[in-house]
């Protein structure tokens, strides 16, 4: 690195927000990259520097700082949270009757997006070949029919008043226990997380009769991870020419702010622990792969 020594500390630890672009975006503190710095991995130093500060935690969201870690590792957590934490979701929709104007496949798609409150840790991944069983599947039912409200006033034109059941909400979905599920999940009643998700609108005479199977799966968006809190980086200062030269905007390279928003199936702190476990499991399997390669 040709940069003068005074700059080196900055290059190593800061991302510079310039007027027209971001500088020093990449992590460069590899061992041996900077003369005079010892960048070899050191567990003790890592333990000293690394910390997690939970700023905020409630049922649905959580915010914490993760400091002293490489961007790649932090990003791995983010990616796992987004894509690889298992959840229960509606996988199969059996439509026995659908006379609403919503087409079958659109209806099925809408149902698939409804988060189901069921702890995925208590279920197995479903083997596609096998029949649905109590250990891997939740059965839900939606059976509703719209009719005219006999008590509606004559000159009313408000559908709310005229019809009964004309709005189908997620609360209309009922859980049908299979096998011993009724006993096992007696206390943690399985149902959609939110009651007020509108699924379809009906008119008198139209009805829905649907059975749904939920299975455990991954790849569904459960969380949102965010990287900033302190400064929104509008870089407004750079517009004022008098300040431009005096100010230097930087970000601490190894300081990550996570905001985890859960869909409500699992509390966010559980999600994060799940994510860490997934990463650990991946590392384990990678290590064992490495070992097996060494053998050969």
């Amino acid at each position: 690195m040709a940069a003068p020594m005074s700059n080196v500390e900055e290059i190593r630890s800061r991302v510079i927000l310039g007027e027209f672009g971001v500088k020093n975006v990449h992590t460069t503190d590899f061992p041996g990259n900077y003369p005079g710095f010892d960048d070899t991995w050191d567990m003790k130093r890592f333990q000293k520097n690394f910390r997690i500060d939970v700023v905020h935690l409630d049922e649905n969201s959580m915010e914490f700082d993760m400091v002293g870690i490489d961007a790649a590792i932090a990003n791995a957590f983010r990616r796992i949270l987004l894509a690889e934490v298992p959840t229960m979701a509606i996988e199969k929709v059996f439509i026995y009757n659908n006379t609403s104007i919503v087409q079958d496949e659109v209806l099925a798609h809408r149902l698939g997006l409804i988060p189901i409150k069921a702890d995925p840790r208590l279920f197995e991944f479903k083997n596609t070949e096998e029949e649905a069983s109590e250990i891997d599947t939740i059965k839900l039912q939606l059976k509703i029919k719209c009719s005219r409200n006999p008590r509606a006033s004559k000159d009313s034109s408000d559908p709310q008043e005229l019809y009964l059941n004309h709005m189908v909400y997620s609360k209309d979905i009922e859980w049908v226990p299979i096998g011993n599920q009724a006993d096992v999940f007696a206390d943690s009643c399985i149902r959609p997380v939110h009651d007020d998700i509108l699924i379809a609108q009906l008119r008198p005479g139209q009805e829905l009769d649907i059975i749904m199977h939920c299975v455990k799966g991954i790849g569904k968006k459960v969380a949102k991870v965010v990287n900033s809190r302190l400064d929104t980086c509008s870089r407004e200062v750079l517009r004022h020419s008098d300040l431009k030269n005096c100010v230097k905007l930087g970000r601490v390279r190894d300081h990550f702010i996570f905001t985890v928003e859960s869909t409500g199936i699992l509390p966010p702190d559980v999600l994060v622990t799940e994510a860490i476990q997934v990463l650990m499991a991946k590392c384990q399997s990678f290590l064992s792969e490495m070992n097996s390669v060494d053998m050969e």
Binding site: V22, V25, T27, A71, A74
Partner: peptide, 10 residues
């Protein structure tokens, strides 16, 4: 989203 590092341009 791939590396977790910021992009060089805004």
């Amino acid at each position: 989203g791939i590396t977790g590092e910021p992009l060089e341009a805004y």
